[in-house]
Simulated assay, not measured.
Amino acid sequence: MTADLILHHYPSSPFSEKIRLVLGYKKLPWRSVEVPRIMPKPDVLPLTGGYRRTPFLQVGADIYCDTALICDVLEHVRPEPTLYPPHLKGVCRIFAQWADSTLFWAAMAYNLKPEGAAHAFAGAPPDARKAFAEDRKAMSSNMVRLRPGDATSAYRSYLRRIANMADEHDFLFGAAPCVADFAAYHGIWYTRTQVPVLADILNATPSVGEWASRMAAIGHGPMTSLDAADAIAVAAALEPQPAGANLLVDSAFQDDHGIALGTRVTIAAESFGPETTEGELIAATRTHYSLRREDARAGVVHVHFPRIGYVLRRADGA
């Protein structure tokens, strides 16, 4: 390791809690940079180039976006204990993808119905709740959002399915957690810790609460705070790792778009968070894309995205 693991996050972010727990599970020391919940994010965009979802992981001048990719990076940094047990590698990834999308959005539509939102923003300035709602509306312009009643029904059903698994094991697939546990946990974490006024939905599935307590007990590991400007200075002072030599183990070019390496491209999420990041395509492997971009404050950075869930286009629109 030539640079610290720097997590850009904020305390009430569910996806950040997912990665904080993974760091704790792997007992990895990390630096904490707290970012704003909503735009503007003046110390985020110099590093990501447009991507504004939370969290993202910085290692020197390499920026890793999306928690699915961050989990792969942390697995490479410290393979044990593994997030991907060999006999469960396929099923735990598929479950995690479902949990990070279908389960999560049902949970959050339930969590942020009026009484939940009122609790989450209690004590905040009067316009904070409205600003947050408008920000997330802009980020979800490409999504179909569940109404609270539909979300409640779906969340109850999903909790029963998770209970069927938690009834049998300490964790969802066995005696130890895997990536599926961390992906399933964070929306439920929000119910338990951020909107406890709505946590009675968990009463019908006590094994889910017991499992969630075991997850919470993992903790966040050794953390020290870092100022956002200092994180940008770290990137500016270091060269990004060459494509194929960073913390992503696959490097072979996989061309599914007819876009050559070296082309100016944009990458954006398929649904939530439509903002684009533009740069030079320096890697397109079976699992990820990497862009080279330059910023006045951060210098040259490499920004990495998973293939799944992201759209690659030529910057000129051709």
Rank of each mutant, 00 (worst) to 15 (best):
H76R: 15
H186G: 00
R297V: 08
V59M: 11
G90N: 12
N111G: 14
A163E: 13
F56S: 01
G221H: 02
D150S: 13
R160G: 11
L5R: 02
D127M: 13
A151N: 05
Y289L: 14
E17T: 11
V77Q: 05
A166E: 02
R264C: 12
A68D: 12
W98Q: 07
P11A: 13
R145C: 09
P148I: 10
G90C: 08
P240N: 13
W105N: 06
T54A: 13
I218H: 00
R307Q: 10
L202W: 04
G221Y: 03
F121R: 03
H87D: 15
R93P: 04
I232F: 01
M108P: 00
T191M: 04
G187H: 01
P11M: 06
F182V: 04
S153N: 10
P222K: 09
H8Y: 15
Y289A: 04
I201A: 04
L159M: 10
I232M: 08
R297T: 11
T266F: 06
H9V: 02
L291H: 02
A199G: 07
A231V: 07
A233T: 11
L103C: 01
Y25I: 01
Y190S: 09
M39R: 14
G49Y: 03
E280F: 05
M108Y: 08
M165T: 03
D62L: 05
L69A: 08
P85F: 08
L74R: 00
H288I: 06
E134W: 04
Y10W: 15
Y289K: 11
K130Q: 15
Y310S: 07
M215N: 01
A269I: 06
R192T: 08
C92Q: 02
D167K: 14
S13E: 05
R292T: 03
L291S: 03
G262P: 04
V195Q: 01
K26P: 02
G258C: 12
P148D: 12
R313Y: 03
P86C: 09
W98G: 02
A216R: 10
V311R: 11
T205L: 04
L261Y: 04
D4K: 11
C65D: 06
A318D: 12
Y190H: 15
E210G: 05
Y25S: 00
M165H: 12
E275S: 14
H220K: 11
L21P: 00
L83Q: 00
F173R: 04
S141F: 05
S32D: 09
L281T: 03
V59G: 00
G116C: 06
W189Q: 07
P85K: 07
E275T: 13
A315T: 03
G60Q: 09
A184M: 08
I218Q: 03
M139A: 14
A235F: 04
G221W: 03
P114Q: 06
S16Y: 00
S16A: 15
P42N: 09
L21M: 10
D316W: 05
T224V: 13
L146M: 15
S153D: 13
I70S: 01
A245M: 13
P42H: 09
F95Y: 15
D250M: 09
T263L: 06
D170Q: 12
R307D: 08
L172R: 02
V179S: 01
E115G: 01
R145G: 09
T82Y: 08
P125L: 09
V208C: 08
G50S: 10
F272A: 13
G24N: 01
E34G: 02
P40E: 10
G24K: 01
A229K: 14
